[in-house]
Amino acid sequence: MTGDAILSTESLSIQFGGLQAVNNVNLGVHRGGITSLIGPNGAGKTTVFNMVTGIYRPTAGRILFCRQQGGPPANITNMPVHKVCRLGIARTFQNIRLFTDMPVLENVKVGLHARTSSSVFGAVATLPGTVREEVDVEAAALHYLDFVGLMHSANDLADNLAYGDQRRLEIGRALATHPGLLLLDEPAAGMNPQETEALMELIGKIRATGISVFLIEHDVQLVMKISDYVYVVDHGELIAEGRPEEVQNDPKVIEAYLGVDEPAP
């Protein structure tokens, strides 16, 4: 890929026991664009996300993140998860991981954790700075809820939201951490066409604010419609990359998805 990358990996690899889950993957995420990672089930897509966010430690390779255009890239390989988040990479999970017992609004407030700094002492002593920050947190959380369109259910428990709304809430929580790059792990999984449509709109809105998006998705229609650039992985290796229409016709991609006809003997 060419141009300015907000995130890039250099020969990223990971092994689980004897299994080479991801092998020598080099990819870059366009600054301000939507980049997608596709591939069949078990190809290692989520593993890449987990390495980028620090949940897994890669066995080889580097991950570089460059939040400011033209700034020095930060090496985030093996960085603790919360530090990666504070640098500006937020994510959602394939199986939604909300704080189920908490109201929707509180979920977003948790996302604001990294950006606030009030201390335990400040909280107990009710210092004016802390009080101001708490009011700010509540106000900001409502703004984020408004952005993802969940204002009406701020007081509900996260567990009681509809499936599509849970996805949106997870995105809202991720946005609250003030990311430069947002990783979305199969955001449209299990959604009906209307919900998917609304989701695409939301992703477009996020992009419009200048946040780069890195997307794992199974819904090829969705990927082709909104992506600027697509990477295809299979068996842990990058097999194709390019603009959506280029990738779509790549024989290797078709083979990975549909299998290949054995020539008749």
């Binding site: 603790p80 988040c85 704080f99 948790v110 996302g111």
Partner: peptide, 12 residues
């Protein structure tokens, strides 16, 4: 509730 998600939200 969810330690991994908490980490991913930037909580130390």
């Amino acid at each position: 509730i969810d330690e991994t998600a908490a980490r991913a939200c930037g909580i130390n």
